[in-house]
């Protein structure tokens, strides 16, 4: 399958995603410049991390008006997979493709560290290769990853199983101490209602190559590939 990595001015994890998907996962990948509008040749859109437009004003606030974002909206409506990582997650919430918002970390500091996250369930195109409640080690690196939403939204997210990753400790307990940034309900990643748009603060592309200390990121990208292949097989 072919992944399309959207490059905004100021994206800086675009080449990391490219390397992880092509050289480690063995997939077809291309960069999509933010001014492009035709993305019909890609099967999965990746919004990479970084500081699009310097993250000036608000994280992701300016990027959502890039020309390519209209195509990304359409792509989402078609039910095709979209994964927004870190700044990509922020852009998806600003664009209204995911509910809620990401505000400054509880400690008001940028945090870069290895991080345990719990897979809430494996009935999604992003987690089908994981076990239910599996603990993954996927690092975080952000200044504004503190997930907030109103009570009704949170209830809906929980009821629909849209909360897919939660910050936890090594044993999988989602305690306050294990919450690095103050996110409500320890939320590290959520999906839209249809389950084809994922936003997550942790960086799976940073744990694909074993020399970097882990390979848990492969489970997430691998799940997307697995889902796409199954769909093609079913179509036949």
């Amino acid at each position: 399958m072919r992944f399309g990595i959207i490059v905004f001015p100021g994206s800086n994890c675009d080449s990391d995603c490219y390397h992880a998907l092509r050289d480690v996962m063995g997939q077809d990948v291309r960069y999509v410049w933010h001014k492009e509008s035709d993305i019909s040749d890609v099967d999965c859109v990746v919004l990479p991390g970084g500081f699009s437009y310097g993250d000036y004003l608000r994280c992701g606030a300016i990027a959502r008006f890039s020309p390519v974002m209209q195509s990304v909206q359409d792509f989402a409506e078609m039910g095709k997979p979209i994964i927004g990582i870190c700044n990509g997650f922020q852009i998806l919430t600003e664009a209204g493709l995911l509910p809620g918002a990401l505000i400054r970390n509880r400690e008001l500091k940028f945090i870069c560290q290895p991080q345990y996250i719990r897979v809430e369930h494996n009935r999604s195109m992003f987690t089908n290769m994981c076990q239910d409640r599996q603990v993954l080690n996927v690092p975080i690196a952000h200044g504004e990853g503190n997930y907030v939403a109103d009570e009704a939204t949170l209830e809906r997210l929980e009821a629909n199983g849209q909360v897919i990753f939660r910050y936890c400790d090594a044993q999988g307990e989602c305690t306050n101490e294990a919450n690095p940034n103050g996110s409500m309900h320890n939320i590290a990643g959520i999906m839209n209602e249809k389950g084809n748009v994922l936003g997550m603060m942790p960086h799976p592309e940073r744990v694909c190559d074993p020399i970097l200390g882990g390979t848990d990121g492969r489970l997430i990208f691998g799940s997307i590939v697995e889902w796409a292949e199954r769909r093609i097989a079913n179509a036949k």
């Binding site: 994890c13 080449s15 990391d16 992880a20 945090i111 560290q113 690196a141």
Partner: peptide, 14 residues
Amino acid sequence: VYRQYDYMVRTDTA
């Protein structure tokens, strides 16, 4: 100090 620096971006920090 170093927790405030993104020391992993570029995925080369072995």
